[in-house]
Design a protein around this nucleic acid. Structure first.
Lengths: 377, 377
DNA sequence: TTGTATGCGTTATCAT
DNA sequence: ATGATAACGCATACAA
């Protein structure tokens, strides 16, 4: 289905054939508007673009002609000429997950308010997919991009984007060696609060299930390099380990880095709950993980929080409809998204100024999944 | 941040200044590749595009030059020339909602496999926003669009898109008077099964909470025109009313059409539960509504399913982690999205063939939220 | 204020 | 097989 070419020379005999299918009406171009208004293309462009100077009469004639013909700008052509678009790329793991779904929604709203659109690309936390996404966005000549980077250590593709003059804003995660504007929540503090709650209730064996090690999880036996995990997850894990170090001789014992996704979290939790020294509490790094954790707990015939307390590292829409309601670390997700887009536009307006971090506060929302009397076992 | 212009005349003195910020390296163009390869632009284009005929040596020289320079095509320029893009627009109510989040994800996956990208626009069920979104996509010269239409009765903007040669595929909802390819689930059958379950358990006063009447709900006192509701919701409501007609003298009594969103559903349910003839079951038209329903039931101090049975018209990721687990009508959401994109590409390849409907089956997934002994009250 | 002329990077036609 | 040339629609420097 190729859009039919403009038939040059046809002036006014608009071939708006009513019946489909058939030859499609060619889209109205600036040239046609100018002809109808009896002015040059330049004048028409000025009138429509609202720049330069045009006489009132000329402007009116142009605007009327444009309205009459139903003129609409050809954005690819404009973008070719301008060398850039009004599109902002959004590179995330999975648009269908609560955190990225909400973030993207709020990025989209802020973009619309700024006269921009977004193009969303999913990576499933795969670095290769992320590279391909970034290159595609560069080819598209996006005005900027917001990236929740899959790798903490490899940001070369992002640096390349910057080198080509495309602002990159890091969302939720920092990348070593990449100087970029960043916006993320203070996940460490939130996780610390959650841990304090658990420890305060007497928990000593606290499991942790996270997909921060990437789509394929952490190779068994390999050394744990917290600094190589994505930062939002790493920050949570650092807080977890710090809290646990105070009360458990072997804080790494119940830390599980599983592959990306609910199913992997389910299996990881099954394994965790099958251990002889079964944890009395589980920290799920995010709400997708929490789905797997909660199902595994239920399928094991255990109750929350009586047998196992559960807390999640971010806040899904459904946290209050589980029984018991799920304790979570809440992030201001809408603010994260909005801030990310604002950093893009800010960088667009000012190339030179130093990069900034926007760190938004998290809170711990205690609900019944971490309630119950202090325990000692 | 304007991308710096190419400096014509500069042949090989690539100004790759290492330090940022500063003059950004202009992107490599086809012309530069051709120069470096010592051939004409036409030959370079043929070699890179893999069309026409080129000698093996010329092709190699071009490919090597392109690789050496890191050539990447300028997509807006290509799109200008071609008159179309490889982008498919996706127009939905809210990317952050489970149904549309999952659908969009699956559209995106299918698009990637077909060499296409998507551009997502949220409407919040507002017709004006949908019109603006469609026009923007037309200006962008998208190859096609997938639309979950906000209005059942006004599809003029969609017809315009078709008139401009852009295929429109309707997702989840049909539009009166618009001949278009459509993909949706058999929501009526699923709802009928859910109703049969409820009626079989003895329920006679069954409430229904839906946002099918649009973002602002149904004006109180206005006549109910089921045919003007969005079809997925309307189909469910028809099934609801049909089932209820058999057992309830006044089937419209507990039907509530609330505004779009969880909060509105919460309030609508509160009202429903406050009635003297309180329903013993509530059908939530979708899972966002279900969140509001479940919270309202809990906040009213009622239990599920003992006091109020609950069923949702679609399946969120969290259906199995509520207590009790939520009975739902499940749709093959991934298949819906994939089919929608396939209809776009099919229409792209074949403009003329008649429009088709893809109707995918739904099932009723009975879980504990509708369990319990048959009741008689 | 207005029009002329040129360029953006690509693709494609048409001679050679 | 290859190169010269035009065209896509828009934006703008510059001349009038």
């Amino acid at each position: 289905m190729q859009r039919s070419r403009n038939i040059s020379g046809v002036v006014d005999g608009v071939a708006r054939s009513g019946d489909l299918p058939g030859p499609r009406p060619s889209s109205v171009t600036l040239t046609e508007v100018a002809q109808r208004a009896g002015v040059s293309r330049a004048t028409a462009a000025r009138a429509l673009g609202g720049y330069g100077s045009t006489s009132a009469v000329a402007r009116d004639r142009v605007l009327i002609a444009a309205a009459a013909l139903g003129y609409r700008p050809n954005l690819p052509a404009r973008n070719t000429r301008n060398g850039t678009t009004t599109t902002v790329g959004v590179v995330i793991a999975d648009i269908a997950s609560p955190f990225f779904g909400q973030s993207t929604r709020s990025i989209s709203d802020a973009a619309k308010a700024a006269g921009l659109e977004i193009m969303v690309l999913n990576t499933d936390e795969e670095l290769d997919a992320e590279r391909a996404a970034v290159h595609l966005l560069l080819d598209q000549r996006v005005a900027g991009m917001v990236v929740a980077a899959a790798s903490r250590t490899d940001g070369r593709h992002l640096a390349q984007a910057q080198a080509e003059g495309v602002p990159v804003v890091l969302l939720d995660r920092r990348v070593i060696g990449l100087e970029a504007d960043r916006v993320y929540a203070d996940n460490g503090s939130g996780a610390a609060l959650a841990m304090a709650e658990l420890v305060g209730h007497g928990h000593r064996r606290i499991g942790y299930v996270s997909s921060a090690a990437g789509p394929h999880g952490h190779p068994p036996g390999a050394p744990l390099l917290v600094d190589e995990l994505v930062t939002s997850g790493g920050d949570r894990i650092r807080a977890y380990l710090a809290a646990l170090t105070e009360v458990d001789a072997d804080p790494l014992r119940h830390l599980v880095l599983c592959p990306f996704g609910e199913e992997a979290a389910y299996r990881a939790t099954q394994e965790l709950l099958g251990r002889p020294d079964r944890p009395t509490a589980v920290f799920a790094s995010d709400s997708v993980i929490a789905l797997g954790v909660l199902r595994a707990v239920a399928d094991a015939g255990l109750s929350v929080p009586g047998d196992v307390a559960v807390v999640a590292g971010d806040e899904p829409a459904w946290s209050r409809v589980t029984t018991p309601p799920l304790s979570t670390v809440t992030q201001p997700v809408a603010d994260l998204g909005r801030a990310a887009l604002e950093l893009v536009t800010r960088r667009l307006a000012d190339t030179a100024s130093p990069c900034i971090d926007v760190v938004l506060p998290t809170t711990f929302q205690a609900r019944a999944s971490t309630a119950g009397p202090p325990r000692r076992d």
